[in-house]
Design a protein around this nucleic acid. Structure first.
Length: 190
DNA sequence: CCCTGATTCGC
DNA sequence: GCGAATCAGG
């Protein structure tokens, strides 16, 4: 990919809009965030409004002398075989489609979406605990309607650090490719 | 671990 | 000029 005028313009705009380099890279396509950052610097638009870095901080740190692995024999370059172009496609980069939204840190451990709660068809003996009884290491798989008093959580023993018990984990974490096939009909609309 | 931008330097 | 590798930090 090359930096056509159009792409450069878009880069400028997105950078000015505050998107991260990886987000911009995803938006442009065909480039990595490194490429974006490199371009940003070459264009001289680095350092986005960063609340006055206070003179001192602004000054190049004298110690900043890089400690590059003393390219004893062409570090990086020489030994690197033809890149297989593994464009950055992880993290929010893949979700960058939505320009605005910046709701990343908002989501909580998140129970399954309501629609998924009634999906389970196979009878499964849950502890059925209330939110008050729910403790660490207890399966947080929701049972029933969260707006009703009867609402419960599975409460089964979950692997430390995980949200669900082994059983519900298998439901919650189906491989993307299997989802469509295995999905039972969900609620009509909501 | 995920992410962020900054920098270097072979190409 | 380009951008991977790396650094430094959250």
């Amino acid at each position: 990919m090359q930096w056509t005028d159009e792409r450069v313009e878009l880069l400028k705009k997105l950078w000015a809009d505050g998107l991260s380099a990886s987000q911009i890279a995803a938006e442009l396509g065909g480039v990595t965030r490194n490429a974006v950052i490199g371009k940003v610097h070459r264009l001289g638009l680095s350092g986005r409004a960063k609340a006055a870095p206070t003179a001192v901080a602004r000054i190049r740190k004298p110690v900043a002398s890089p400690t590059r692995p003393a390219a004893s024999s062409g570090n990086g370059g020489a030994s690197r075989p033809q890149q297989q172009a593994v464009y950055a496609s992880r993290g929010n980069a893949a979700l960058a489609a939505a320009p605005v939204m910046e709701a990343r840190h908002v989501a909580a451990p998140a129970p399954r979406p309501v629609a998924m709660q009634l999906v389970e068809t196979t009878p499964f003996a849950c502890e059925s605990v209330t939110i008050m009884e729910l403790k660490e290491n207890m399966c947080r798989w929701p049972l029933g309607d969260p707006s009703q008093a009867e609402f419960r959580f599975c409460g089964g023993r979950s692997t430390p650090g995980h949200a669900y018990c082994p059983h519900h984990a298998t439901i919650a974490y189906q491989p993307a490719n299997d989802r469509r096939r295995d999905r039972r009909p969900m609620m009509p609309s909501h």
